[in-house]
Structure formats: structure tokens, C-alpha cells
């Protein structure tokens, strides 16, 4: 169990400046395997900037992002060569976009979408790739007969589930999600969240999920970070933060949810 105690990801003093404007400032945290971290805050609070900087898509102005790689031990992701970083991003990491069109190839079939990561790491057996894609389609509750259909013929909820399948096929250990339920209607959201919660549990995924929806955060995440104007103003266990908010802004945020 030593591995469980070692952080998978360590972010230290992460700062992203856009000229004089602050994207996010002095963010530090650790994430352990199997842990789900929610980042909440209103639009423009720096959530997405933070996510991009952590997920190696945008080099921060200051600070470090260290990841416990499978082979090389702890590595600073911005010190890796680009080839290593890109390999990490398409094998051990996954990124689920808010808009499935950003995360899917819309002009190839669902099967090819799921198979792409497998082929990218050298899988060259059509039958195996296809079976694997088929089984993943089942795991995200899409019928097998849709395997050869284009994602553009899928509903929004199915596209989002397909995107999740496409990302999880290489058994990543860390998944970044940017508003995965945004743009979906409430019942579809609920099903997707249910599915995500199951997958996260079964696969022991570490997840960083950015959302402005506190209900999503409460349902999925173990810990919660509240951001305002680029800074983390409150950080703690989800229930603790939501049930007993300390910071005035968090109190405002929590009280703004409709209670039943």
C-alpha cells in the first residue's frame, strides 16, 4: 500500500499569468491514486486555466507539476521531452472535454475513435482492436450495433460517453475532465454521472474534474477546491466544504443552490 500513499500528482506554486492578468496564482495540491478532486468556481475564476496548466497543455509562468510515472518515477512534466510528454498524455492520462466534438474525431466511426489510442501505442491487430472497442462501448452503455456509426449520428450524451470510452481504453491512471456534464440535460447528466462514478471506482482512477455545478462536484469528488479570481480560497473534503463553508465566497456559492 506504499504506492497508495505516494502522491500521483504534485502541483506546487502553480501560477499562470496572461501578461499582467492573473490566470491562476500560487496553486499547490497533491493527488493520490484513486482520488477525485473537484475544482469549482464561477466563470473566469481560473479553473480551466489551472486544468490546462496541470495537464501539460499550457506551460505555466511559474511553479511545477510533478507526476509519478509508471516507469521513470516522479517526473516534472514540463521538464520531459515533448515526445515523452505526448506519450504520457495519450497513455497514462486522459482528457475529457466539455464539448465532445473537441475530444472526438467526428469523421471516423465510434470504433475507430476508441481504437485510435490503441493504435497510437502500437496495437496492430484489427480483430483485437475492434473487440476492445466493442467491449468499451458496452461499458459506457452504447449498443454494439453502433460500433461502425459516425459520432455525428450520436446524441450529445452518447457522444460524451463515447469520448469517455475513447479516453479510458488505454487504462489511464489520471483523468482530467472539463465540465463533462455541461450542455447535457438533467436526466442524461444524472446517468452520465452515475456511469462516471462507477468507472472511477472500478478502475481506481484519479480524477481532476472542473465544474461550476456543485451537485456534480458533490456526487463525484472526494475533495474540493474552490477558486475565485485565480486563487484557491478554500480546499478540503467535499462534504466539509459544502456543508460547512468557511470563506464568504464559498458560503455565497453554496447558498445559491436551490435546496429542496
Amino acid at each position: 500500500m506504499t504506492q497508495m500513499n505516494e502522491p500521483l500528482l504534485r502541483v506546487e506554486d502553480l501560477t499562470m499569468m496572461y501578461g499582467d492578468r492573473v490566470g491562476c496564482k500560487d496553486v499547490s495540491f497533491e493527488l493520490r491514486p484513486g482520488e477525485v478532486l473537484g475544482i469549482v468556481g464561477e466563470s473566469g475564476s481560473g479553473k480551466s486555466t489551472l486544468l490546462r496548466s496541470i495537464s501539460a497543455q499550457q506551460e505555466p509562468t511559474n511553479g511545477t507539476v510533478e507526476y509519478q510515472t509508471r516507469i521513470d518515477g516522479v517526473r516534472d512534466v514540463y521538464q520531459m521531452s515533448e515526445a515523452q510528454r505526448r506519450l504520457l498524455m495519450r497513455t497514462d492520462w486522459a482528457f475529457v472535454h466539455q464539448n465532445p466534438r473537441d475530444g472526438l474525431r467526428m469523421n471516423v466511426s465510434a470504433g475507430a475513435n476508441i481504437g485510435e489510442r490503441l493504435m497510437a501505442i502500437g496495437d496492430r491487430h484489427y480483430g483485437n482492436i475492434r473487440n476492445n472497442a466493442d467491449s468499451w462501448l458496452g461499458k459506457v452503455e452504447i449498443a454494439s450495433e453502433r460500433l461502425d456509426d459516425l459520432p455525428s449520428t450520436f446524441s450529445g450524451g452518447m457522444q460524451q460517453r463515447l469520448q469517455i470510452a475513447r479516453n479510458l481504453v488505454t487504462s489511464p491512471r489520471l483523468v482530467f475532465m472539463d465540465e463533462p456534464t455541461g450542455g447535457l440535460d438533467v436526466s442524461v447528466q444524472a446517468r452520465l454521472l452515475d456511469l462516471l462514478r462507477g468507472l472511477v471506482h472500478d478502475l481506481n482512477l484519479a480524477v481532476i474534474i472542473v465544474t461550476h455545478d456543485l451537485a456534480v462536484a458533490r456526487l463525484l469528488s472526494h475533495r474540493l477546491m474552490v477558486m475565485q479570481q485565480g486563487k484557491v480560497i478554500e480546499h478540503g473534503l467535499t462534504d466539509q466544504v459544502l456543508d460547512d463553508p468557511q470563506h464568504p465566497y464559498t458560503q455565497l456559492l453554496v447558498s445559491s443552490i436551490l435546496q429542496n
Binding site: R105, V108, S109, A112, G115, E116, M119, G122, Y126
Partner: peptide, 10 residues
């Protein structure tokens, strides 16, 4: 070059 095989898969 994984993408090239995506085309062949299709």
C-alpha cells in the same frame, strides 16, 4: 503514426 492506422481501420 497511430492515426494512419485509424484510416485503415475505418
Amino acid at each position: 503514426y497511430g492515426l494512419m492506422h485509424v484510416k485503415l481501420y475505418e
